[in-house]
Nucleic acid binder design. Structure first.
Length: 300
DNA sequence: CGCGGAATAT
DNA sequence: ATATTCCGCG
């Protein structure tokens, strides 16, 4: 219907927020005037391309720097983007302008000196987009001793997640049929430049906060990491991330969710699938000591 | 190329 | 709001 202008061979969505194994949660999409139709955002699209091997020659992660990617074929990426958005006149000049708008939003930044190379601000990626981490009590934010997630560590984690075989996740996600309408994260003022905070994993009150009003049961989340798997009980519940909603699935509450409002079967899963393959060691789960050691105390 | 202002579109 | 379009500047 709304894809009339789409051509084949382009990664595309059926319905919305469903991309062959990887779907972004509703809250990651911009709220459109028409409640029913949300539109893909450029960075979602980029992530999507980055996710698929068939586009390796067009755009790919830069080895070495987590979250950094190179647009190997700007014209092609622009073309693909144009198709998705039904903007045949799209070109790299315009696309890059859109990317530049992300600088202020802290979603991306440019890797200077490297042509066509940008870098995702992985930590912001979560914080900015997951309502879970937004502390709504703006008046006295410091009461919570807000902290940012460990940068270096997080980047690794997120990056590895982005490289994750989502098809597998898809299967699992299917089993835990998902939720209903996103509890529209009521956002009052300018949302993008907001001050985002995150609960300190070591904080004793975290669980309460997570289950509280800040995190509606409708919000799906999972501990996205092998890293957390090694952190012991509570830790795995602190870092949650993007979520999936297979399109065909009827969204309904799942019995297994209980009052917690969420499931947490991921530890084992990630531990399993992130098992470092020979010649690959970057994904090795660090231990708790290291994790804590890298915890910065200073938000930007 | 890459940047960011400005006007415009959805 | 998040782009799209156009464009002058370095």
């Amino acid at each position: 219907m709304h894809r009339s202008c789409l051509a084949e061979g382009v990664p595309t969505v059926v319905g919305n927020s469903w991309i062959s194994g990887l779907a972004f949660p509703d809250w990651a999409y911009k709220a459109e005037s028409s409640p029913g139709s949300r539109q893909i955002q450029l960075w979602h699209f980029i992530l999507e391309l980055l996710q698929k091997e068939e586009f390796r020659h067009v755009i790919a992660w830069q080895q070495g720097e987590y979250g950094e990617f190179v647009i190997k074929d700007p014209d092609e990426v622009a073309r693909l983007w144009g198709r998705r958005k039904c903007k045949p006149q799209m070109n790299y000049d315009k696309l890059s302008r859109a990317l530049r708008y992300y600088y202020n939003k802290k979603i991306l930044h440019k890797t200077k000196g490297k042509r066509f190379t940008y870098k995702f601000n992985l930590s912001k990626l979560i914080i900015v987009n997951c309502p879970l981490w937004e502390v709504r009590a703006m008046p006295a934010p410091n009461l919570f001793r807000p902290t940012l997630v460990p940068m270096g560590m997080q980047s690794k984690l997120l990056h590895s997640m982005l490289l994750t075989p989502w098809a597998m996740v898809e299967q699992l996600a299917g089993q835990w049929a998902l939720r209903g309408p996103p509890a529209a994260s009521e956002d009052k003022k300018g949302s993008s430049s907001r001050i985002y905070q995150q609960q300190f994993p070591g904080s004793p009150t975290t669980d309460t906060l997570l289950s509280g009003p800040t995190c509606p049961p409708a919000t799906w989340r999972f501990p996205g990491l092998p890293l957390l798997a090694g952190l012991g009980q509570g830790a795995g519940e602190r870092l949650r991330f993007l979520f999936l909603r297979p399109e065909g699935l009827e969204v309904k509450p799942h019995p297994l969710m209980g009052e917690k409002g969420y499931l947490d079967p991921w530890e084992g899963f990630f531990a399993e699938m992130q098992r470092p393959k020979p010649g690959e060691e970057s994904l090795r789960s660090p231990n708790l000591e290291n994790f804590e050691a890298e915890w910065p105390l200073d938000p930007p």
